[in-house]
Write a protein that binds this DNA or RNA. Structure first.
Length: 652
DNA sequence: CAAAACTGCCTTTTT
DNA sequence: GGCAGTTTTG
């Protein structure tokens, strides 16, 4: 453990103030690159130095990655003591509480997790049952509305009360049915973790008091991303002692579209009267040119804490803007630039990042990077769990773990194809609704009573045998990996992959995904002595796949702005800085231009030394070539007004 | 019931 | 332009 003076030595006065202000509510406004993580970890150690036991400190983050990083840094500062600090994501914290108090919430002791694509198919199923055509209600729109309701702590009944038209009523009905479905299937979605925890603390004063007694000091990272349920949970825990320290940057709030509420960080001093405010404004990442550009842009936002970043490094190269013909030229210019710099030994591939607004933009870059033979890694994009193979195998495991999980059952019932077609499934589903039973149970019944078509009889027999074998083996606490291997063989999944992808190379790539999943299981088994299936599934869903953590690989990073938050690169290319892309077309309609501006701000502040922004004069959109106009943010940055022939995003 | 042809959609993404 | 979901065909 470091001593007090050692701890504080490397800190600037503002950081020191953030560390030393320990009691009561504290708001730390930590601009980009101002040493936020450092402040949180040192503050934690400082609390311990002052006599607070590590287990009395709660450190909440949003991502597992952030939690891990925090843990590592803490461990360097104070060794084994760091292990006793409660440090994790909101969701992992909530899941622990829900498991411990499940009976108070009327929940089963173990439950599955419904991710957003399961959520979408569940919602589609509810719409079908309500006989609502997908043409009149977009399932994705319903999904985000339901999630927004949950994020506002609104139950289905509240949604009914607030409904203003028929559409709202349909959504409310869908929400109601969706919740019934989740309960029936013994599954929780991500929002539910927060909602149930909130309910737990609201209705059980004993639990709340116990938590408040345990967590004498609470810190929250990335407070600008907090949503209402998270806020209420924390508020309940610190209700009396009010030792809450939140760290964040309102200028980097970019998750409003999924419920994060910037008003929480803007209104902290009102929510917690007497709060002390500390502003970290010294940026240790970028040159003054880059910081100036960022400041010029962000000051156009009206709802924010007044502040201005300054660079600790001083001047550097000027920020460049480049106009290119189209996205192909954009890609080839940047690739040429990277090659040029690397060949003159001015930089390594890993020093470069290409940042873009949308997930389809990387496409043009991928092909160009490949043909230029530049190593690159695409971060984010379609997640590991969205790949067909993973979803298939996982669905099998989820049915084995929880036979009530209907979404998963319906997915696997005819995957690989085993003669159980749509008509058979529909018949079973109708029966299931009628009897109020689960689809799997109904299928078993129909199989026993010989009510299935002959092909389906055979197919279902094989399926249920494979499931039963795996189930028995799980119950007997057999080795998880061998159970998994056996299952994959039993359902002839390798053959299925070969059948779906006649091209051997593609089949190979697809099968590699299954291998990767098996690796996950092996790792999990090694880490956990009691490697049970339910635990494995929960860890899988909760832990983002940390496979691309090969930081030492020397490759150019290609990613979206959302994925880039928290990272830094020597050279950054911010591409497609056009009206309609950044700001995105939809933001004009939805009135979220300020969030787009923050996205731009996040992008700019990723750069340490060199920043180049590009915009196209035309670009292929949905297969059609369309003219483009430079983003308003570029004009803001230069302090200029757009010319007369300029067209804003709302008219693109 | 499964493969082939066809249609319509299309921000961002972690837990 | 590309994918997923649906309809048509074998």
């Amino acid at each position: 453990m470091k001593t007090q003076s050692q701890l504080l030595k490397g800190l600037n006065p503002e950081q020191r103030r953030a560390v030393l202000t320990t009691d009561g509510p504290v708001l730390v406004l930590a601009g980009a690159g101002t040493g936020k993580t450092r402040v949180i970890t040192i503050r934690t150690v400082h609390l311990m130095n002052e006599g607070t036991a590590p287990e009395n400190i709660l450190l909440v983050t949003f991502t597992n990655k952030a939690a891990r990083e925090m843990r590592e840094r803490l461990s360097k500062l104070c060794g084994d003591k760091s292990k006793e600090v409660m440090c994790g994501t909101f969701h992992s914290f909530c899941i622990r509480l829900i498991r411990e108090h499940h009976e108070k919430l009327g929940l089963p002791k173990s439950f599955g997790i419904c991710d957003s694509s399961d959520q979408l198919s569940a919602i589609k199923a509810q719409l079908r049952e309500l006989r609502i055509a997908e043409t009149s209600v977009n399932p994705r729109a319903a999904q985000s509305r339901i999630s927004l309701y949950k994020n506002s702590l609104m139950l289905p009944e509240d949604a009914f009360k607030e409904a203003e038209d028929d559409y709202d009523i349909i959504i409310a009905r869908c929400y109601e049915k969706y919740q019934e479905y989740l309960r029936r299937s013994r599954v929780l979605d991500f929002d539910d973790f927060l909602l149930y925890t909130h309910e737990l603390l609201r209705d059980n004063e004993d639990v709340r008091t116990q938590l408040e007694k345990q967590f004498k000091y609470v810190m929250i990272d990335e407070y600008q991303d907090t949503n209402t349920p998270q806020y209420e949970i924390i508020r309940a825990i610190v209700k009396n002692h009010r030792n809450i320290c939140v760290v964040g940057d309102d200028d980097q709030s970019i998750y409003g579209w999924r419920g994060a509420d910037i008003r929480k960080i803007l209104g902290f001093e009102k929510d917690f009267p007497g709060a002390k405010k500390v502003y970290l404004g010294t940026n240790y990442r970028s040159t003054q040119e880059i910081i100036d550009a960022a400041n010029m842009i962000i000051k156009n936002n009206s709802s924010r804490h007044e502040k201005e970043l300054r660079s600790a490094y001083g001047p550097g190269e000027s920020v460049a803007i480049l106009r290119v013909e189209d996205e192909m030229h954009e890609a080839s210019h940047i690739c040429g630039d990277i090659r040029h710099q690397v060949s003159r030994e001015q930089a390594h591939y890993r020093d470069f990042a290409i940042l873009c607004r949308t997930a389809q933009q990387p496409r043009a870059f991928e092909s160009e990077l490949r043909s230029a033979n530049i190593p690159y890694k695409l971060v984010g994009g379609q997640s590991f769990f969205d790949r067909k193979e993973v979803r298939d195998i996982l669905s099998y495991l989820r049915v084995i773990d929880n036979p009530a999980d209907e979404t998963s059952f319906l997915r696997i019932v005819n995957t690989p194809p085993r003669g159980i077609g749509k008509s058979t499934v529909d018949k079973a589903l109708a029966k299931a609704t009628e009897q109020g039973a689960g689809a799997y149970a109904v299928f078993k019944d129909m199989h026993k009573e010989n009510e299935l078509p002959s092909a389906a009889t055979k197919g279902f027999g094989k399926l249920s045998e494979a499931l039963r074998t795996a189930y028995t083996s799980v119950q007997a606490n057999d080795d998880l990996v061998s159970t998994l291997r056996k299952l994959v063989t039993d359902i002839a999944y390798h053959e299925e992959v070969a059948r779906c992808y006649p091209d051997p190379d593609t089949a190979q790539v697809r099968w590699a995904t299954v291998d990767e999943l098996l690796n996950f299981a092996e790792n999990y088994q090694r880490k956990n002595e009691t490697a049970d299936l339910n635990g494995f599934l929960q860890e899988l869903m909760l832990e983002e796949s940390d496979k691309d953590d090969d930081d030492n690989s020397n490759a150019v990073t290609l990613m979206t702005l959302h994925a880039a938050k928290g990272l830094e690169f020597r050279n950054v290319y911010l591409v497609g800085v056009e009206e309609g892309i950044l700001p995105h077309k939809r933001s004009a309609v939805e009135g979220t231009i300020e969030e787009e501006r923050r996205l731009m701000y996040v992008g700019v502040t990723r750069a340490q030394r060199l920043l180049l922004m590009t915009f196209c004069t035309a670009r292929a959109k949905f297969g059609k070539l369309q003219g483009c106009h430079p983003s308003r943010f570029l004009f803001e940055m230069k302090g200029r007004t757009p010319p007369d022939d300029w067209v804003p995003a709302s008219e693109v």
